[in-house]
Structure formats: C-alpha cells, structure tokens
Design a protein around this nucleic acid. Structure first.
Lengths: 347, 347
DNA sequence: TTCCCTTATGAAAACGTTTACATTCGGGCG
DNA sequence: CGCCCGAATGTAAACGTTTTCATAAGGGAA
C-alpha cells in the first residue's frame, strides 16, 4: 500500500507538505503542489480514510437507519438522501431491516464512530430509546416520529394536512359515507393520517375505520370485508392510509365485482410509482419522498456544522393531492389517460 | 469522548487487557472480563472504528457501486445485499447515480480505503476502466457485466436463458409474429436478452426489434409505434426487455384501444413488483433480484476471505418464467385473480 | 529449595494521517 | 551591514486502537 510517506519521499518534500498540498491549504508553492500532485497521480496514492478520520474526527459519512428497504417508499427515500449526500461529498452508510428494538439498538451502536451524523426513521425509536442509545454528541435528524426532542431535529411529511385535504376532497366529490383503512397503531404517520381524516370529515359524513398495517395484504382484507357488506351499508368511498393498502383493497373490490370508482371510490396516500399504474389510476396524496430525504440530509448537515445551534423547530413538508381516476372525480375525463407519463423522469 | 484508556483506568487494567476482553481473546480471566464489561457498559464505551481500522486494516464495510437507485430493481437489489451484509456483521456503503464514467471513477476512488470489498454494477465499467481505477488488492464482484476478468469474480442473472425460454413460451402460446423492445445497446443485460430472444425464436416465427432504453417512456413510444400499424402488419405478441418498458407499452396499447392479451400479447422481464399490479398482470421472467444481491455479497465475502484463491468461475443465477394473464395463455383462467398476493410477504 | 513452564497481564510500538510549532530562507528597511 | 518579518517547508506529537514482546505470578517436578 502506498502511503503519504512514499509520496513525500518521491516528491522530495515532507509529509506535512504533501498533506497541505492535498488538502488545498494555502502556503504551498504552485510549483511544489504540481510536483506533488504529479507523484500522487503516478503512484495512484489515495489517502487512508481511517487514518484521516482518526485525527480529524470526521468520517465524511452519514448513516441512515431505516426500518426496512422493502417497497418503493424507502427506495425513493434513499435515492433522495443519496443524491443530497453526493452533492455534499458525503458517503452514505445504510442500515435497515431491524425486526425489533434490540436490533435497532445494535445497529445504532454499530454506527457509532463510523458516521458524522445520523438520519433515523424507525418505529422502534422513542424518546427513551434515544436517551439510552444515542450519545448526545452525535447530530441526528428524526423522521416521521412523534418524538419532540430538544436534542434532535425532526422532520415529517404533512400527514395530517394531506389526510385532511383528502377527506375534504372526497366530501367535495359528493361522497357521504367514507371508510378509512388505518395504518399500524404504533406508527406516527398512521396516527396523524387518521387524525387528519377524522378532522377533515368534520362530522359531516358517515365514517368508519378499519384496521390495517400498511401492507398490501391488510388492504386486501379490508377491501374484502367492505365488499361483502350489503349495498345499503357499503361506503361510497374508501380512503386507505397508504397506497399499498389501497392497491390491495382495489384488487379485493375488483375481485368482488365492484367497479372503482363507479361503485365505490378509492384513494391512497404516498403516491408511490405503482399508484399511477393500477387500473384505475389511484387518486392519492403525494408525499415528495425523495425531497423528504433530501431535506432531512440538509437539516442534518446544518446540525453537523453547528452542533450547538438552537434545536431547529420541527419541520413539516407539505403534501399535495393528486387527482386521478379512482376517486370518481376526474373519472369521466379520459383526456388525461397518459398522465402517468408525467413523472416518467427522475424528478 | 470515552476511549479505551478510560475503561482501562476505571477497571484497573491495561488497555491491552481491555482490548483482549472486548475482542473475545482467550487468556483473560472470566473475572477480569466481567469487570471490564461492566465498566464498558457503565461508561457507554464504543470502540472508535477509525482507530481500529487503522491498525487492523479492516473496515468491516463493503461498498456497493450502483448506476442508480431509481426504480424497484435497485431497491430489491440493495435489500438483498443489506440483508446478507447484516447477517455477516458487515456495514453497507452505497454510492449511486453516476451520470458518466468520470463520476463513477470518482466514486470508486472515494470508496478506496473505506471498504474491504466492492460490489460493482455499472454500465460505465469495462475492463480498461477497472484496470485504471481499481487497485488489484481490493476484492470486487462484478454484476451484470460482460467483463470476463481474471482478477474479479462476476455474477449475472441468466438473461439469455430467461429470454430464450420466454420466446419459446410465446411460440407455444401460438404467437407467430413477435416484436422485441430492446434495452440500451451498451447494456450487457440488454444484449443478452436480445440474443436469447433471437435464438429462442429460432427462425420459426416472424420477428422484429424496436429500440428502447429500459425506461417506461421508451416502452410507451414503442407501443404507440406498434399500435399505429395496420392490423395485417401488427405483431401478435410483444416482448419487452424489461418490465418498465412493458408497462409503458401496455399503456400505449390500451390508449390505442387494443386489448391485451386478446389483440396482442405482452410480456416483460425482471418481475418487479409492479408487474403483478397492472391490468392485465404481466407475464414476465422472474429474476430473483434480492437473491442476486445476496449471492453477490456472499461471493464477495468469499473473495475477501481468500483473496488469492482461484478466480471463481463466473456464476449465473437461473431465471424462471412467471405466467400471468398478459401473454394470452392463462388469460381465460380467472381463478388466479388473487395470485398477486403470492408475493405479498418479503420473500 | 531451585528451576522451568504456563498463564494472565503490562509496556510500547506500530498503523497513516493532520497540525501546532519550529526552522530556514530571502529580502526590505533602518 | 545587520535585523526582523513573512512565506514556505520541516519536525514531531497527537489521534485510539491492536498486537508483539516482555514480565510477573504461581505451581509442579527434580
């Protein structure tokens, strides 16, 4: 392995000068710098990251602690984070698939000292967990969590606002009996969406809430349950707390011979790519997931650069409603049939 | 920050003993070890990764160099890699979104010294590139590349075999005029799939090849082109080189008023989750993407453990055909309508 | 008792950087 | 001509581990 000493010897300077030349420090003659850079290129010298980290106490790496990598949501999220990290010259260490709180703790601990900051999104993380496992010195940004922590920044999508707006939209479409397929009870996003739905309905329409866990399977079950109801008791609209459940529900409804949106309207939440591809395309709440990742990273960087700065107020990213055919609003307007191409690029 | 010295002082032993106790070395009294572990827990001591790496020359991290993180393919791939890495106690450093060869080189260089091994999947990587930018000492596994390299292991999905089998399947369904929507020309997977298609048709049926680039958009364009043909010249089956193009094509066909599979059959390649959700569900070639990631990591670990071992023959992961409704084979069998639930879990 | 061997522990040298401090050198000014 | 000052470079001390080698303690055999 070629070290800085080899470069120094070859360029006939001291290691200090090589280090300075490489780190862009002033006070190195242009001529000397050129000579050094030449040797560096010739020898294919690459600084040893660990050695550098040891003395600078910086790893140039940020860690992302995620609950899972399954599905399009996380794919998008990581993409957003990666893009932002790359733009800042930071590396990205990912860790996911934590079954329980114990595993999460282990993962968090293992990242200790390998990263300069942490992006955390995990259902197992609460205030007590953080206190016990996250050293106060490590900057962190919490995503989609209820933990209102003075020590760490938090960042959320506007779950409440999005669900609220969707409920109002459904009312505006003329629906008077709306069923909500909820997410897992412990989940912060899920709770906020439910609350938004309730408040958005405002007591003006009949509502009911079915259990779900964000999985396609649970949406399918809820759909079957609703489809089996006698027509008088059947809701005229269904609002699933995320798109995967909406998709599952859609299949259950179709299977039962019900047409969406003619017999029953259906909407979701997240706007994952699949939402555009099902038939009919799904009206949903768009969460700019990649942007969320991007914003989280930016916030983390801000905290890393000023660790003692004020706690930074919890930020909320706005959501917007995306109206497609499934809600029974734009259903007749066939003009927008190729609207699914609008997001074909990598926005 | 609490270091090993603090632990040593507190436990009244030398740093050497602490190190030994933590690394599970024999020859540390059970009593001493207990005492040390107690102090470690009390002080919340976590070894400094960089310092450790500096001396052991191990980072316990593997890097994944990917072309992009966009779409379900890479999401699945990363998941497979992450799971396997976690099982081995390795960290995962990801780097993606490299627009050109230059960026790829930078990324590769930046990973130097931060990882113990590299998983590489990138269109910009060829033999010359590797020679110039990858030090011979760093174990690496190449995925989906044509580079048959003595220095590095390679791993591919059975693109040829899958496409070959699909072509035969389409013939078996009675189709006699098959159009193929190809992937990008420089892409190894794409070339293999095209070759498999050609050989699978075996000159027995009429064939034609349309350009594509793996994007939904390009599939859409190809679909429009085919739909615009007079009925006598229209193919009775379309085989897209990946699922995203098949989905785009499906929308173009539907938009043009053609019914799949009645007017024209359609199949894809990859079996990304979306394939199950479109209408009709897409017959496709299943690439066990997560398994591919898993296998790649295992192969990399093998190389890391025995860097001088024989080159390890290029491995190919088998593919299988998944028959759904879009190919006009099982179209009438409505029984399997809920077949999309088969993969609802995290297989 | 003396010697040697085993076993647990300690002392100190690496590992490859960065950086505070010291040194050298050349030149303008008194 | 000697002085001092700034600029360029060198010297060496960190950074927190692991690991080699040395040492101490205890015990059995001669």
């Amino acid at each position: 392995m070629v070290t800085i000493k080899d470069v120094a010897r070859e360029a006939k300077v001291s290691v200090a000068t090589v280090s300075r030349a490489l780190n862009g420090s002033a006070s190195v003659t242009a001529q000397t710098r050129r000579r050094i850079l030449g040797v560096v290129a010739r020898l294919r010298y690459v600084p040893h990251g660990a050695a550098r980290s040891l003395v600078t106490r910086r790893t140039q790496t940020i860690g992302a602690l995620l609950p899972d990598l399954f599905g399009e949501f996380f794919s998008e999220l990581i993409r957003g984070i990666d893009l932002a990290a790359r733009a800042r010259g930071l590396h990205l260490l990912v860790s996911s698939s934590h079954g329980d709180s114990e595993e999460t703790a282990t993962a968090l601990r293992a990242m200790q000292g390998r990263v300069d900051g942490l992006l955390i999104m995990s259902p197992h993380v609460d205030a007590a967990f953080l206190r016990d496992h996250l050293p106060g010195t490590l900057p962190a940004v919490l995503m989609n969590t209820s933990v209102a922590n003075k020590r760490h920044a938090t960042l959320n999508a506007d779950n409440y606002g999005g669900a609220h707006a969707m409920a109002r939209h459904l009312r505006g479409c003329g629906h008077r009996d709306i069923a909500f397929i909820a997410g897992p009870e412990g989940n912060f996003d899920a709770r906020e969406r439910l609350k938004g739905f309730r408040d958005g309905c405002d007591g003006k329409v009949r509502t009911r809430v079915l259990r779900g866990d964000f999985s396609e399977e649970s949406g399918y079950r809820a759909g079957r349950e609703l489809a089996a109801l006698p027509i008088a008791k059947r809701p005229d609209a269904i609002f699933a707390a995320n798109d995967m459940m909406a998709v599952g529900c859609l299949f259950a409804l179709t299977e039962a011979g019900l047409r969406v949106p003619d017999d029953v309207a259906l909407t979701g939440f997240d706007d994952i790519p699949i939402a555009r591809f099902v038939t009919p395309p799904l009206t949903t709440v768009r969460v700019r997931i990649a942007d969320l990742g991007h914003a989280a990273l930016e916030q983390l960087v801000a905290r890393m650069e000023a660790p003692d700065a004020p706690p930074a107020p919890a930020r909320t990213l706005p959501c917007e409603i995306v109206i497609r055919a499934s809600c029974g609003h734009a259903a007749r307007k066939r003009s927008g049939s190729s609207s699914h191409h609008r997001r074909a690029g990598r926005d």
